[in-house]
Design a binder for these strands. Structure first.
Lengths: 233, 233
DNA sequence: GCCTGTATAAGTGTATACAATTATACCGAG
DNA sequence: CTCGGTATAATTGTATACACTTATACAGGC
C-alpha cells in the first residue's frame, strides 16, 4: 500500500524532481510507452529528464509501491505485467469493495456530494447521446471518485483508488466500447437512486453488480486482444 | 499498494543496507519503539545503524508505501497513527476479502496446503489447552497465511498480507486475551471443514464472520485502552 | 508585551564520486 | 564448435558534498 494517503502531498510532489520523475514515468507506463517487462535504467531515465540518479531511484521506489514496476536488487527495474487473471482478480476484489463503499456512502454522503453525483449522471446522459467517449470516461471516473470520498473511510478510499490506478492500463480499451458507456451510466443512476433512498443493501448490491458487469463487458470486448501473448503462467 | 509482490525479494532485501534499514525500522515501528507522529530524522537513523542517508531515504520511501510512515516533502517523515475508525474499517474490508479468499481457497487448495492447515488446527488445540499464547499467535498467523497462498491469487494474497501487516500493531493486544485464542481456533476448524467439504459459500461466510468476531472481541478487550487519546478527527 | 523580519541552524533534496555487483565479450582448452 | 573462465564494461548500491527549504531564535519596531 503504498503510497500517498494525502492528496496535498501529490500536488507538492509535482514540484520536486522526484515527484516529477514519478508522475512522468507513471504516465508513460500507463499510456503504454514502455513494454511490459521492459527494463528501466536509472541513468537513461535521468538523462532523458535532465536529473541525476538520486530522484530517479526514489521515484522507482514509489513506482514499485504502486505496483507499476518491480525492482530486483542489483539487477534492475522492470515494468510489471498484469496477467488476465490479475485483472479478473482485481475486478472481483473491487466488486466487493465498491459494494462496501456504496453501503458506507449511503450512510455518510453529504448533500454536496449527492448533488455532484446527480449532475454527473445527468451530464453523462448528454455525452452518451452525443457519443463523446472522452468526456464519458472522465465522468465515469469522477462518479466513482465521489463515491470513494462519500464513504467516509480513507482506508477504503485509498484501496479503491489504488486498484483503479492499477487497472487503468486495461480500462481504456473497455471504455472505447460504445455500448458500455450508456449502460454504465444507467447503473450509476440506479446506484445513486439507492443511495438517495437510503437503501444501503440495494446500493451495495448494485455497485457490486456494476463492477462485475464492467468486467464481463471488458472480457467480451477486447481484453484478450490487449493481452494476447503477454500472459505468464 | 505498497510493496513487494515477490517473496524472494524480501529475502534479498535483508542483504542490502536499504533492506536492513527498512526491516529494522518496520520492526521498531510495529513493536512500538517509536511513538505515533514521532519524527524520523535521516541522519539520526543513519548514525544509529551506521549507514549513510541514502539507504535510509530509500527505506523511508518503502515504509511510506507500507503506510507505516508519512513523508511530508521538505519537512520530514512521521510515524503514522491508526485511529480506531481506521482499524474498524480495515477489519470490515478484511472481512470481505478473507471471505473471498476462503472461497477461492476452497476451489484451489492443494493437498499439501490442506494437510498443513489440519496440522495447524490440531497443534493450536494443544497450545490453547496449555495456554501458550505466543505459539497460538504464531499458528494463527500461519493459518491465515496458508489460506492466502491457497486462494491462488497473488493480488488478493498481497492485499491481505498488507492489511495484516497494518493491524499488527493493534493485534498483539487482542491475542493476549485468553478467551479469544481457543475460540479463534474453533472457527479456523470450521472454515477448514467447509473447505474440505468443498462448500465455498460456507467457507466464505465463516471466514467473513471470523474476522468480525475477531474485531468485536478486540473492541471489547482493550482496543480502546491501546488507543485512548490518540484519535484524530 | 506582541508582532515581524532577519539571521542562523537544522533538515531534506539533489548531484556526484566511488564501491560492489552483475552482465557481456573475448579467448583458450577440449 | 562448444564450453568455461577471465577481463571488461555496464549498472546498481552507497557515501558524501552541496543546494535548497524550513524551523528557530533573537532583535527591533510598534
Amino acid at each position: 500500500m503504498s503510497s500517498n494517503y494525502d492528496v496535498k502531498q501529490e500536488v507538492t510532489d509535482k514540484y520536486s524532481l522526484r515527484g516529477r520523475v514519478f508522475h512522468k514515468l507513471r504516465d508513460d507506463i500507463l499510456s503504454g510507452k514502455y513494454e511490459e517487462n521492459e527494463e528501466l535504467k536509472e541513468v537513461a531515465i535521468g538523462e532523458e529528464l535532465g536529473v541525476s540518479r538520486t530522484p530517479v531511484r526514489e521515484a522507482f521506489r514509489q513506482l514499485e509501491l504502486e505496483g507499476l514496476i518491480q525492482i530486483i536488487p542489483n539487477k534492475g527495474a522492470y515494468v510489471t505485467g498484469i496477467t488476465e487473471k490479475d485483472v479478473k482478480d482485481i475486478y472481483m476484489i473491487r466488486s466487493l469493495l465498491e459494494g462496501l463503499c456504496a453501503r458506507w456512502a449511503t450512510e455518510h454522503i453529504t448533500q454536496e456530494q449527492m448533488e455532484e453525483m446527480e449532475e454527473n449522471v445527468y451530464l453523462s446522459k448528454f455525452h452518451a447521446q452525443k457519443g463523446h467517449l472522452e468526456q464519458l470516461a472522465e465522468l465515469d471516473n469522477r462518479f466513482h471518485d465521489i463515491m470513494y470520498e462519500a464513504c467516509n473511510s480513507k482506508m477504503l478510499e485509498h484501496q479503491l483508488k489504488d486498484f483503479h490506478q492499477y487497472v487503468l492500463r486495461v480500462r481504456k480499451k473497455t471504455l472505447a466500447n460504445k455500448n458500455r458507456g450508456p449502460k454504465s451510466n444507467e447503473e450509476h443512476e440506479e446506484i445513486l437512486q439507492a443511495i438517495k433512498d437510503g437503501d444501503a443493501d440495494r446500493a451495495e448490491q448494485l455497485a457490486n453488480r456494476h463492477m462485475i458487469n464492467a468486467y464481463d463487458n471488458m472480457v467480451k470486448n477486447g481484453l484478450h486482444e490487449a493481452y494476447h501473448d503477454r500472459e505468464q503462467g
